[in-house]
């Protein structure tokens, strides 16, 4: 399936920030289930509501060229939206060439700079964005086209160094309580003698049954235990509960962030699910919200212990007196529609 993505995340701050640093993991994972045809992440900072003070940095990422960042990682000039497009001469440095490195480039206010890029031990491509202030609004825009293949949830051909055993650790969001422990025990008892794969499917079904899809009932900080107690939640809560149950069954499990082509599917285009490490298969995705394993409607971005750890954008603003407001706009479409 060919899927196109347009994903804009906008952070607005009541007062201009002095500087902003973001760690961004908005690039499709490299594995047999997806081939990137085109992918761009652009970050624009808008200074003090004056359009003339804005700059943007654009990076084009092409699948297959991400290895050491030596090739295929073209940077191109931003033509920016709505008259924001300054010439971004400095952006032409690609990751492969050694940039001048005795002084940071004297950027214009609001100009974003991308650097310190690498593929981490779990296979996620990470880039670092620094924006010199004053800046009161930052817009991260992802546009891309990916060819996907249905691998029945198996993360085949994904290179990573992190030992799966690492993902037996619980966090605040995935820590088991009495109810989760009880639910896990029921499933474990009912699947005695079956394969781990069967058990994993049953755990996923248990989550689907216990937490009804209901947007707006839970928040970003809701834990798996809270969501189970309330019986309602969104994909984040389903994934947290799934991880928690898997841990109770001694199966390594992690949180995965990505996109979903949501024609008739539950959830939003921006989606999350869980991956479980199953002997013989490796990492396998489970999406309790849609009672399935990820197929060719899914685009995988990155992973972590929980939603916070897997956040594709983490940022820190210096000089922030109040937290900013966040707006997200995501559309995933099947090409040709």
């Amino acid at each position: 399936m060919k899927l196109t993505v347009r994903h804009a995340t906008s952070y607005s701050y009541p007062q201009p920030m002095r500087t902003l640093v973001q760690s961004v993991r908005l690039f499709p994972s490299r594995f047999d289930g997806q081939t990137v045809e085109d992918w761009q992440v652009s970050i624009e900072g808008f200074g003090d509501a004056a359009p003339g003070h804005a700059g943007g940095a654009m990076r084009q990422a092409v699948s297959g060229g991400k290895g050491g960042g030596k090739s295929g990682d073209k940077a191109k000039k931003s033509d920016g939206p709505g008259g924001m497009g300054q010439s971004l001469g400095g952006m032409a440095q690609s990751l492969g060439e050694a940039p001048e490195a005795t002084r940071p480039r004297p950027d214009a206010a609001g100009q974003a700079r991308i650097g310190a890029a690498f593929r981490d031990g779990v296979g996620d491509w990470t880039e670092t964005v620094s924006i010199r202030g004053p800046v009161s609004r930052v817009v991260v825009t992802v546009t891309g086209r990916v060819e996907t293949h249905d691998l029945s949830g198996v993360l085949r051909g994904h290179r990573e160094m992190a030992p799966p055993g690492l993902y037996l650790r619980s966090t605040r969001a995935t820590a088991p309580d009495v109810a989760l422990t009880e639910l896990a025990r029921e499933v474990i008892a009912a699947t005695e003698g079956t394969s781990t794969l069967d058990r994993a499917h049953k755990l996923s079904e248990a989550v689907t049954g216990a937490i009804a899809y209901a947007p707006g009932e839970t928040a970003a900080h809701t834990t798996a235990a809270d969501a189970l107690a309330g019986g309602k939640g969104v994909c984040q809560d389903h994934a947290h509960a799934m991880i928690s149950l898997a841990h109770l069954a001694d199966i390594p499990a992690r949180y995965v962030v990505g996109y979903l082509f949501a024609e008739g599917a539950i959830g939003e285009a921006s989606h999350a699910w869980a991956e479980l490490w199953l002997d013989g298969l490796g990492w396998v995705g489970f999406d309790p919200a849609n009672e399935c394993c990820p197929d060719d409607r899914y685009i995988r971005l990155c992973s972590g212990y929980d939603a916070q750890d897997a956040a594709p954008i983490r940022g820190i603003a210096a000089g922030a007196s109040e937290p900013g407001t966040l707006e997200v706009d995501v559309a995933v479409q099947r090409q040709g529609q």
Binding site: V21, S23, A117, T126, E127, T128, S130, G315
Partner: peptide, 21 residues
């Protein structure tokens, strides 16, 4: 704070990314 404790005021945002790269 971008890699570890988000509430740490003592560190340097983005330092781990520079280290890793």
């Amino acid at each position: 704070p971008l890699c570890f404790r988000p509430d740490s005021m003592l560190g340097v945002p983005g330092l781990m990314n520079v280290y890793r790269s």
